[in-house]
Nucleic acid binder design. Structure first.
Lengths: 125, 125
DNA sequence: CTGCTTGTACTATAACATTAGTACAGTACG
DNA sequence: CGTACTGTACTAATGTTATAGTACAAGCAG
């Protein structure tokens, strides 16, 4: 059972799915700071995708300060996550995130109050 | 405020976002059977998207039996109710939505409690 | 050093997504 | 009838995504 999950049939590009998957694994603690990720070639085999695609995701995540790569050694989770983000930048991102979230949920017919209730539920896990 | 929501910056193709958006609107009853959708040209203008892209989505949804198009008249929601409109399906979608939201926000260093606070702010607008 | 692993870079190719523009076909209405 | 609307069908051009294959660069162990 691979740690990450991508679906080649999804209209969302593989690189975007993998990027999100890795970020989520770190955010949820499945991947702790310092932990080593699979090698680009190994993960490519596991997910049945091209090694270039995996490599580009790793490279992008390093540019974003999420991962740290050491040639000949491997790719690891950075100790200090998101060191680049100022408070203003983070709040702008959060605002966009909320906009998207509320909009999508509204399309499913859920009100803001229901979202808050559901999030409170999540809080207790 | 347009009925559908697409984001040209998202890695997910526009046609896929629009497809999902229309299906959701039907599933939640925002678009009832028999209701007319915007014309391909009008919706293209509203969403700042090419008319071909809209037209292809309509055509695909007709092939799937979701919509019915009449040349020179317009595009309408089919009378046959969608089987995806169940409560269980919507809640599964919401759960996935929340997972993404919380994960992304966690990467920005925001806790669940902060998210709830921010959403409450949104509620007062 | 050699040999093996790692990430990285590059080519080339194919498929897909999106756009602009134009044109055609069916329907409604005066 | 003519006109204005509808969806549909093309072309051409551009950018993105994913693939295979090859090669190079950096670290580590023997």
């Amino acid at each position: 059972m691979p740690m990450f999950n991508v679906d080649s049939r999804s209209p969302t590009p593989i690189y975007a799915q993998l990027d999100r998957s890795i970020r989520a694994a770190i955010a949820t603690g499945q991947l702790e700071p310092g932990a080593q990720l699979p090698t680009v070639r190994q993960l490519a085999v596991d997910l049945s995708v091209n090694a270039n695609t995996v490599g580009r995701v790793y490279a992008q995540l390093e540019r974003d300060g999420i991962l740290e790569t050491r040639r000949g050694v491997g790719t690891f989770v950075r100790e200090s996550p998101s060191p680049h983000a100022t408070l203003a930048h983070r709040e702008r991102e959060l605002r966009a995130l909320i906009q998207h979230f509320v909009g999508d949920a509204a399309l499913l017919g859920f009100t803001l109050a229901e979202l808050i209730t559901q999030l409170r539920n999540e809080e207790k896990k």
